[in-house]
Simulated scan of single mutants.
Amino acid sequence: MKKKILVVDDEASICLLLENFLSQEYDVVSINDGLEALLWLESNIPDLIISDIQMPKMDGYEFLTKLRKRGFTKHTPCIMLSGKSESKERIKCYRIGAQDYLTKPFNPEELDELVKKNLFPIHFAVEW
């Protein structure tokens, strides 16, 4: 059974890019805003969430904050995507519960490594 990844991004091109890149190995669901994603999460639990920060209606910071306050998604790994590379943005994401932060445009190989790192932590690795 494939691991499930939720992608939350208001840019259709980013959703499509992530779906195309990740769907070979994972079950990918794309949602275009944080509010809709929270509704989806009421009846679904992904193994990983990849979320944009700058979105209308609910930005990624608020989405992540609400995600961490919910029982079933409290510990779901989350990778934040942003066009901003400043360390203060990165630190803010880490403080509210992100496992990783990736700057757009991102390197697909780096994304692949971050996804694997979060879905298959080293202490569960079969090989070293």
Rank of each mutant, 00 (worst) to 15 (best):
G97R: 01
I79M: 08
I96Y: 03
D33C: 14
S23F: 00
K2H: 05
L16A: 05
I49F: 10
N44H: 14
Q99K: 07
E89N: 01
V28Y: 05
D112K: 15
L81D: 08
K74V: 00
V7H: 15
D33N: 15
P46Y: 14
S30D: 10
A37S: 03
D100R: 08
G34K: 06
S23G: 01
E42P: 06
D47R: 02
M80E: 02
D47Y: 06
D59P: 10
I96L: 13
F63Q: 07
L16D: 11
K104W: 10
D10Q: 12
G71A: 13
Y94M: 05
K3P: 11
E113I: 15
R90C: 11
A125G: 07
C93G: 02
R95D: 05
K4P: 09
S23W: 03
S51Q: 06
D112V: 03
I91H: 11
I79S: 04
G97N: 00
L16N: 09
K84D: 09
R68W: 02
K2G: 01
D9N: 08
F72V: 11
E42Y: 04
V126L: 14
N107L: 05
I79A: 11
I79F: 14
K116C: 10
D112E: 14
L64Q: 10
E42C: 01
K92A: 04
I50C: 08
L48K: 06
A37Y: 07
L39F: 02
K57N: 11
P77C: 04
S85L: 00
Y101Q: 04
Q99N: 13
Y94D: 02
N44S: 15
Q54T: 08
K3H: 13
V28W: 03
D47M: 05
C15F: 00
L16Y: 03
T73Y: 12
R68F: 07
M80G: 04
P105A: 02
R68I: 09
I50P: 04
K2V: 01
A98R: 03
F124T: 13
D100S: 11
Y101F: 13
Q54W: 12
G71C: 09
Q99H: 12
V28M: 04
C15N: 14
D33R: 08
Y26I: 01
L81F: 12
K69L: 15
E62C: 06
K116E: 06
S87H: 00
Q54C: 09
E25L: 09
V115H: 02
M1E: 07
A37H: 10
I45M: 06
F21N: 10
K88G: 00
C93R: 05
K84Y: 08
A98I: 01
N107E: 07
